[in-house]
Amino acid sequence: MFLKIENLKMQFGGLIAVNDVSINVEKGEIHGLIGPNGSGKTTIFNVLSGYYKPSGGKIVFDGKTISNLPAYQITAAGFARTFQNLRLFSSMTVLDNVLVGMGHHAKTGLWKTILNPVAVQREENIFIEKAMNFLNLLEVADFANELATSLPYGSQRRVEIARALATDPQIILLDEPAAGLNEIETEKLREILMKIQNTGVTILLVEHDMKLVMGICDVITVLDYGKKIAEGTGAAISNDPVVIEAYLGQEDL
């Protein structure tokens, strides 16, 4: 098993945000995570990426328990993520944003940086080349030297994905990547996600755009009030009475 979330529980004071959720994610799949607002999707992401320590249960990745590691080590172990609200580094160019994601691969420490500028520059050049590849993949290479936060919204979302890919992940957690995108941009995103899947990266996707989710996810897990209520292919999920019930409770759907 590639990624195993076992009986995960997350409690804030008296509020139980995630209650005994188990999810298995297979290598190379696009795994959707859906549910009404407040059902605990983003909380699961925050636990997965190490921001919260789970109140119960554990997360096993590639045979190793990772739920007690600090965030940066979880990234090093092969997790990358994007954020629901864009969180690009506001003082940096698009290229620099992506390069930050590569920093933990740097072999040159402080001393080498100071004493051997040539070696550092050589390493930097390799990083830049790789970063440009990611920017090309996400089709934002033209903006490489623009200030990241000056880009249109849709492009910023793609820069975030490029930045996450730059950490060289085995699995990437996308938190509502289609939020705020128009139909054409969403279609483009769909293509990009397929391309990412083809590079061998597993995708865990939280998304409200059902068309997108149903279209590309191999497996979908449905959450409601912090509990897993269903799991299966898109077709199975959309006919599941429990799921329909949960979503009917939501007025805007």
């Binding site: 600090p70 940066y72 090093a76 990358a80 690009l88 506001s90 930050v100 920093g103 933990h104 990083f127």
Partner: peptide
């Protein structure tokens, strides 16, 4: 280079820096 970028990442967005594998501490 990368040390300076990690510094600026921490300044700009501490949480996002962590998610990018920056050993913030």
């Amino acid at each position: 280079h990368h040390i300076g970028r990690s510094f600026r990442a921490i300044r700009d967005d501490y949480q996002a820096a962590k998610a990018m594998g920056v050993n913030t501490a």
